[in-house]
């Protein structure tokens, strides 16, 4: 590697700059994948023109278009809150990337409380949704914001609880530590506990993303785009499309880290070590993203009360039981099995 004499804050700045460049890039790639995969699942072609080859530049063109669009703020809206809301949604998204270990050393900031940080930061966006909905002075936006708040809070719990399972199994809150603990990924071992925790995490994650089948807060056919009904132009992009797609990748990355073994090979076979960790991480994340993309066009959406029931009556009890099971496993499982 190269040697550079940089002070700590300089390094931090470089890292932040990289993150700010990479997150939008990944979002564009994932957004393009979403366009194309969804199109083909639906027996269409998707974008074909912009950029020439299979419309690769569609999202760039879209972005340009949104920049050119008029930024409308309703007269009755609370202007300050209205314009701050997209930031409150967008910034936490970027912040979560900081602790994701892409490879053994490829992590912006390795925190001992990485998982804790991640979960804390990612729940800020709820406030952004509420801000957007409340300040818009629009009934649909209000309904959407309240739906979003109720949903995000309800699904925060199963996410935290199932992530706690992973932390318990690994015995650490550091994300790197969790990955290192997964010689066998948690999905495969310990039997059952990891898999169910993964499914709970995944289900709750989809809800957290407000993507179908849990997209009531933005249900287009019911309440237009929920909290963002009044948004337009760049604000719209930064409050809906961008966080949604970026979060999709991030949730996939987190699930990969917590349950699929992160940058470790999927099974501990010697020859698989030759593949770099980044590739493993990317492959696993891509698989998770594909699952999300696959689910989206296939399912109708649930109703608000059914969604709440699903969280409180099914996911949360399940994850509580899982925590018990994980505790029991950690304490009582024979050493050879761990």
């Amino acid at each position: 590697m190269f040697e550079l004499n940089l002070s700590d804050w300089q390094i931090l700045l470089v890292k932040l700059g990289l993150v700010l460049a990479i997150v939008p890039a990944i979002t564009l790639v994932a957004g393009y994948a979403e366009h194309k995969v969804m199109a083909h699942l639906q027996h269409r072609l998707g974008p074909m023109y912009p950029g020439g080859f299979h419309g690769w530049a569609t999202l760039l063109a879209d972005g340009l278009k949104f920049i050119y669009k008029e930024d409308i703020i309703p007269a009755a809206a609370d202007r300050k809150v209205f314009s701050l809301a997209p930031l409150a949604i967008f910034v936490p998204t970027v912040l979560t990337v900081l602790v994701l270990p892409l490879d053994e050393t490829l992590v912006v900031e390795e925190l001992d409380l990485g998982l804790f940080y991640l979960l804390a930061v990612s729940s800020i966006s709820t406030i952004g949704m509420l801000m957007a909905g409340w300040s818009s002075s629009n009934k649909y936006a209000l309904i959407g914001a309240l739906r979003a708040a109720a949903q995000l809070i309800a699904y925060e719990l199963p996410i935290v609880l199932s992530a706690a399972v992973a932390a318990m199994l690994a015995g650490t809150l550091s994300l790197n530590g969790i990955v290192e603990a997964q010689e066998w990924p948690f999905v495969l071992w310990p039997p059952g506990i990891g898999l169910i925790a993964f499914l709970v995490f995944f289900g709750a994650g989809v809800a957290e993303l407000t993507r179908p089948p849990f997209d009531m807060p933005v249900a287009e056919s019911e309440i237009i785009t929920g909290a963002f009904t009044e948004y337009s132009g760049m604000r719209f992009i930064f409050s809906t499309f961008f966080p949604e797609v970026a979060n999709m990748v991030i949730i996939s990355g987190v699930a990969t880290t917590l349950f699929l073994g992160g940058y470790q090979p999927i099974v501990p076979l010697g020859f698989l070590d030759a593949v770099p960790g980044l590739v493993w991480f990317t492959l696993k994340t891509a698989f998770m993203v594909f699952m999300l993309l696959w689910i989206r066009p296939t399912f109708p959406r649930l109703r608000e009360d059914q969604l709440q029931k699903f969280a409180w009556k099914f996911l949360i009890p399940t994850s509580l039981v899982l925590i018990l099971a994980a505790g029991a496993w950690v304490l009582y499982a024979p050493e050879g099995l761990k």
Binding site: L41, H43, W294, I295
Partner: peptide, 14 residues
């Protein structure tokens, strides 16, 4: 999910 996956690999008629 099987139905949509099936269409992913179908020849397109667009």
């Amino acid at each position: 999910m099987a139905v949509t996956l099936k269409h992913l690999f179908k020849h397109n008629t667009v």
